[in-house]
Design a protein around this nucleic acid. Sequence first.
DNA 1: AAGTGGTCTAGACCACGTC
DNA 2: ACGTGGTCTAGACCACTTT
Lengths: 231, 231
Amino acid sequence: MPRENQTWQSVRDEVQRRIQTRVWPMGGLLPKEEDLAQELGCARVTVNRALRHLAEQGILNRKRKSGTRVAEFPARNVRFRIPILREEIEAQGAVYSYALLLRAQLAPPPPVRAAMQMKDAPALHLQSLHLADARPFVFEDRWINLATVPEAERVDFETLSANEWLVGHAPFTAGDMSFGAVRLDHPMAKALGAHEGDSSLTNERLTWDGAQSVTHVTLTYAPGHRIQSSF
Amino acid sequence: MPRENQTWQSVRDEVQRRIQTRVWPMGGLLPKEEDLAQELGCARVTVNRALRHLAEQGILNRKRKSGTRVAEFPARNVRFRIPILREEIEAQGAVYSYALLLRAQLAPPPPVRAAMQMKDAPALHLQSLHLADARPFVFEDRWINLATVPEAERVDFETLSANEWLVGHAPFTAGDMSFGAVRLDHPMAKALGAHEGDSSLTNERLTWDGAQSVTHVTLTYAPGHRIQSSF
DNA sequence: AAGTGGTCTAGACCACGTC
DNA sequence: ACGTGGTCTAGACCACTTT
């Protein structure tokens, strides 16, 4: 006799309900997948999918042998969508444009060099501005590892932003990203059309192709910009 | 004759390889799941799992009937882990402590009231400080909707932070979160042990239990703090 | 109407983590 | 050694989208 075709979403909802009504208290142990499946009248794989989903969100902790527990600290894993700047600007209905401010070839300063795990070989340094309807939106400060992407030396980046060129020419396999806040100094404020001392959100990214660093970039958003997500 | 037991991770890796080497160019159409499964020698469900995973990351776009395409803009969906403050501080090996600075009951200012979709009913307003090794770490400004959580009125929050109390007493079903940067004014700088004009990362959250808002909180981190993630 | 992804079931075996 | 989650396979049906 076949079971009664629960969906994994309905299992997820039922589990969340039991957590919220504290049938299963914080830190409590859930029944094992097989038992839950039998109780709810579905296949174990369906329960597995639902519990895996909640674990990815940080609501459950799962370990083999020890079982599944309600997380003590319901630390949520929140997803943020990190779009290409052109896309983000055009999605607002604004016209995207780009201006190269500086292009040089030199050894990066020690913190960047250390983060990129480079010898003292020169790298390509680019500073540029991304504009929305001709208003400064983001200031970009980028270092490209020429040992990893030697072709970059022959590109002038006057019309095509480094971001878009790299997307097509230097695939990456991993990366780190962080957000912070920074007080604008005079030149940066001037570039962004803001005031010295204003506060800006910064986004720093470092990408890798295997064990070799590809590029290190710091984006400084115009003051007031926020990054949003729902959960 | 059974197929040869590929793992979904190996399928995912192979697909990523083909995207990086442009066997499947940006915007290009992938074979349908069934064909891919046959080519790679595994079950269709295994291919499905791998492709679904990449779609969740924003690397692929999938639509029924039209098929699976390589995303034009490889916008990554990056996961950030948003821990409870106590957990975050203790994870650094520091001693967590907490101090309530203000507790009042009044109608929130218009922007907060609008965001929380409240009438002009009073809400509970709390300001507090979270400290790591007795050094200010985060300033918290919180509004609690007493229509949703009336019990909060009888809690003094002197020793237990609102965050930890709410976790146990006011489950939420959804929320919005955003990050921004702010220039510290004098009182905030003083509370955080920083200088007026310093720049801080802020994290704003609004949680809902169904259609009713639960709480609105703005966290202002001590200057220099960053939020990190890998992908 | 037809094509493609989305999901379910049953059964099996594997892998990790604890004892 | 053993218990629990992790995953795979084959086959089936459903659901959404476009023709």
